[in-house]
Every structure is written in structure tokens, then in C-alpha cells.
């Protein structure tokens, strides 16, 4: 039975490959449920986005087969990436990435690299904002930075998500800009981090907009600057007086920091161009839905879309940036 099964399985794969190569007019489509791997735990930012996409795809019937979300969060996401890396030629497995695509292999030495996967598409970029407690005296980023510079090192405390990942990299960049080291305290999730700041246990955070928005609106937190080269485009008021677009860039405040987090899709290695095209097209359709636009606005995402070579180039550039930053901060695996 076993042998026969294997034989039949192989026959199907071969047949599928032959059809693919023959380039029969019919475009490729998934023939069974597609596993959507999330290299992070349930409830986090990447997981939310993946399940949201799953919902959109199901609700708008964008795909005949269901999209199935699978969390593989072990080793800061290494488990998920290794799983997709190992699924060579399997078109029914895609992965949503965050910055741990770069940081995890660099910080832990776990053997994988984005080149082991097939780049699909960039969905959006997540912003980072420097937040302080609303009761603190700092009204602008400059005041805060100047105070850090004026006080001895290790006076200020920064809370962030995870260790040697995006939040700590940004902290290291701020350290470099001020010349004074801050104490970085890692927590498990972005929501926890924001609450530590609301409770006054730390001085600042670099939460993503969606993680801290409620506290901003509730008058508990104050955004100082945004880590991008331009302001956000969302002009709808969040608080009585301010909108996302009113937050100045950190650059303008004299802290030359730019950091955006990738929210993108990768496929298993060795899939055909047809299959990549199917997913790129699928995510284009997802991005056109009104639900997606709402979600983007809620989380103040930067809505850049890329695919193909442009995307691969962007990823490659971002990877070398991470390597440089992490090397400087001493985060590379020994």
C-alpha cells in the first residue's frame, strides 16, 4: 500500500510538473488547501495579518481552495522558515515574513536565508514610532533626545518586543545617535510593551502604530516621531488634535533613523513562475478589497507593493542594512 501510494504520489507530481513545463494555457491554481505559515505566535502582528488575509480570501472567494494558517513560532520564527525552506517545490505552502526573516538567522546562526525561499510580494511596510508616557515632560523628540544626551548612560529604559530583533536594533540606532546607552528590556508581545509604558515602568517604546494607537487616543501615550523619511499619509484625526500625519519624522527632530518592517509573502524554493504569479495576483486582489484599506488605515501601514525582481532587490538591500546594523550593535551570532 505504502509503495503504491508513493508511486501514485510521484506520478501526480510528475504529471503536474509536465503540465507546468508544457505551459498549457490554463494558469496554475492550488489543487489543495494552501498552508499559510506564520513564523510567530498566535495573536501577534504577523498572525493578525495572516488571519485577516485568510478571512478576506474566504469572504470574497478569491481562491477555490481554503487558506489555512499554521503558526510555527519556535526559535524566533526559525522553525517556520526552516519548514518552508524544506518544502522544496511545494506550491501549497507560503509564509508571511516580518523582520525576523533577517534578524533570526543573523542573531542565532540558524542556517537559513531569504535566498532559500522564493520571494513573492511585499504587502505593506509597518512603521515604528517613538512613544513616551503622556505624563512625561517631553513634547518633542528633540527634548527627549537632548535629555538622554544630558543624563548619564543607562538612565533611560526602553521596552521592546523580543531580543536582538527590530525593537532592539532601533534602540541601538538611538544609542548611536545620542552616544548614550539606554537599558533595553525585552517583553513577549507588542501589547505588553505598550502597557509597560502606560504603567510608567519604562521611559519609552518603539511600538508599531497599531499596538499603541488605543493608548494614544486614550491620552496615555504620546508619539514623538516616526522612523521613516516621510510623514504618514493618514490625515484623519486620531485624537482631538492630531492625526498620524501630524507626527514628525525622527530625521526632522535630529535623529537620523529610518526603519520599516517588511510584511511580505515568500514561497517555498523551487516553485515555478506560474505558481508565483498566482499568489502575486491573489495578493493584488486582496489589496483591492475595502477591508484591506480599512486595516491599513487602522494600523497606519505604509502601503508599498512590490513583486518580482524589484521586491528581491529591496529584500537584498534590507538584508545588508540589517547585517550592518546588527554587526555594529554586536548582535551577530558568535
Amino acid at each position: 500500500m505504502n509503495k503504491f501510494g508513493k508511486w501514485a504520489g510521484r506520478a501526480i507530481v510528475t504529471a503536474a510538473a509536465t503540465f507546468g513545463l508544457a505551459g498549457i494555457a490554463q494558469a496554475w491554481e492550488p489543487t489543495k488547501p494552501v498552508e499559510f505559515v506564520v513564523p510567530a505566535g498566535t495573536g501577534g502582528g504577523a498572525d493578525q495579518m495572516a488571519r485577516f488575509i485568510q478571512g478576506i480570501v474566504a469572504k470574497n472567494k478569491l481562491m477555490a481552495q481554503p487558506l489555512v494558517v499554521v503558526n510555527k513560532s519556535g526559535g524566533a520564527g526559525a522553525e517556520g522558515f526552516l519548514e518552508v525552506k524544506g518544502a522544496k517545490g511545494d506550491p501549497h505552502k507560503i509564509i508571511i515574513t516580518l523582520s525576523n526573516l533577517f534578524t533570526t538567522p543573523l542573531a542565532t546562526g540558524v542556517p537559513f536565508n531569504w535566498r532559500d525561499l522564493t520571494p513573492g510580494a511585499m504587502l505593506a511596510l509597518d512603521q515604528f514610532v517613538l512613544w513616551v508616557n503622556a505624563d512625561s515632560p517631553y513634547m518633542t523628540a528633540k527634548e527627549y533626545i537632548d535629555d538622554i544626551k544630558a543624563k548619564p548612560a543607562s538612565t533611560f529604559k526602553m521596552a521592546g518586543t523580543g531580543s536582538k530583533q527590530e525593537d532592539q536594533i532601533i534602540t541601538a540606532m538611538i544609542d548611536k545617535a545620542t552616544g548614550k546607552k539606554m537599558i533595553y528590556v525585552p517583553f513577549k508581545g507588542g501589547g505588553d510593551v505598550a502597557v509597560q509604558l502606560v504603567g510608567g515602568h519604562v521611559n519609552s517604546t518603539v511600538n508599531n502604530p497599531i499596538e499603541a494607537e488605543a493608548h494614544w487616543r486614550g491620552g496615555k501615550l504620546r508619539p514623538l516621531c516616526i522612523m521613516d523619511n516621510e510623514r504618514l499619509s493618514y490625515t484623519e484625526k486620531v485624537t482631538a488634535t492630531q492625526s498620524w500625519a501630524d507626527i514628525p519624522t525622527c530625521q526632522s527632530a535630529g535623529v537620523p533613523i529610518e526603519y520599516l518592517m517588511l510584511r511580505g509573502i515568500f514561497l517555498a524554493p523551487g516553485v515555478t513562475q506560474d505558481q508565483v504569479d498566482f499568489y502575486v495576483d491573489l495578493f493584488k486582489k486582496v489589496r483591492e478589497t475595502p477591508e484591506w484599506a480599512d486595516f491599513m488605515k487602522k494600523g497606519a501601514f505604509k502601503q508599498t507593493f512590490m513583486s518580482g525582481k524589484e521586491f528581491a532587490d529591496w529584500v537584498s538591500k534590507t538584508e545588508s542594512m540589517h547585517y550592518g546594523l546588527m554587526k555594529e550593535a554586536g548582535f551577530l551570532a558568535k
Partner: peptide
């Protein structure tokens, strides 16, 4: 953890949990 997932659900429906 379950509350964390429910939280995700709220966000997806466009509800921002928080003081308001």
C-alpha cells in the same frame, strides 16, 4: 493567550480595545 487572539479579532473588526 486566548484573550490575545480575541484581541486580534477585535482589531480585525476595526475595534481598538483600550480606555475608550
Amino acid at each position: 493567550p486566548t484573550a490575545a487572539v480575541l484581541l486580534g479579532g477585535l482589531l480585525i473588526w476595526g475595534l481598538q480595545p483600550g480606555p475608550l
